[in-house]
Design a protein around this nucleic acid. Sequence first.
DNA 1: GGTGAAAGATTGACCGC
DNA 2: GCGGTCAATCTTTCACC
Lengths: 152, 152
Amino acid sequence: MLDRFDLQMLTALQQDARLPIPELAQRVGLSAPACYRRLRALRESGLIEREIALVAPKTMGWPVTMLVLVSLERDHSRIVDALIARLQTEPEVMDLWYVTGEQDFVLHVAARDMASYEAFTRRVLHDEEQVRSFTTLVVLGQPKRAGALPAI
Amino acid sequence: MLDRFDLQMLTALQQDARLPIPELAQRVGLSAPACYRRLRALRESGLIEREIALVAPKTMGWPVTMLVLVSLERDHSRIVDALIARLQTEPEVMDLWYVTGEQDFVLHVAARDMASYEAFTRRVLHDEEQVRSFTTLVVLGQPKRAGALPAI
DNA sequence: GGTGAAAGATTGACCGC
DNA sequence: GCGGTCAATCTTTCACC
């Protein structure tokens, strides 16, 4: 069970993973080694999934991103699982959500340009038997990214 | 302009920001201090926006997330900018995209439960004059999050 | 960009509660 | 089980070339 120390640490590290642990330790009221031990436990338990650098896609040569709403023919779990496994391996897919309602999936996809996005949809969506339809929302900007959630 | 050293560094740090720089330096073929100097430049120029810990929302007490498709009455830039500024400050909003097409915005929103999501929509969307309509897609799972883009 | 030294961060061993 | 102190090690930074 997470106590206030863990939650304070997670709140801080979600915003800045480079915060020196001795400083964080002082802030939450622990010694540095105690804070490191908790940090290791949070990492090993998977509560901290990864620690990453946020880089704008265009920096990496992917200037255009899209949100894609995907509807399947039928949502049997075998079909869904197979498609998830496929989509996870595609480098263009930055984020993938499995949702309720009219749509079954939402993808956040990056592309070099519109032509390669079209090639992606042909390869991954259009040729996929189980995809009934999809709608593309072209992203003009992302004013907020990976906003840190406070502990409630 | 970014050379292959910068791009290799960005590719690696997008996947693991805790990679020791001496190891990254060796991997890309630089000395550690040269690698540190480039890293500082990448941070100061904003190409590395932030370095963060990825924590599942439910860990922080936000077990349910939604994708919300929002349509505005009209998309004059003054209206759009004001709404963006408002949404950026809302802690429930993890991600915010500004898109083309039928919809104007897509939000990735976290909530404690459905009741507090409803309270959020009432407060931020329903009471907002400029919001014509919105559609909620309840997220059942996020099989891929913050996928790192390779340099092209 | 490289080298080498200084400062700081991280880990491990050990003790006490 | 938890946290604390201390010391060894590694990472990071800062000269200087």
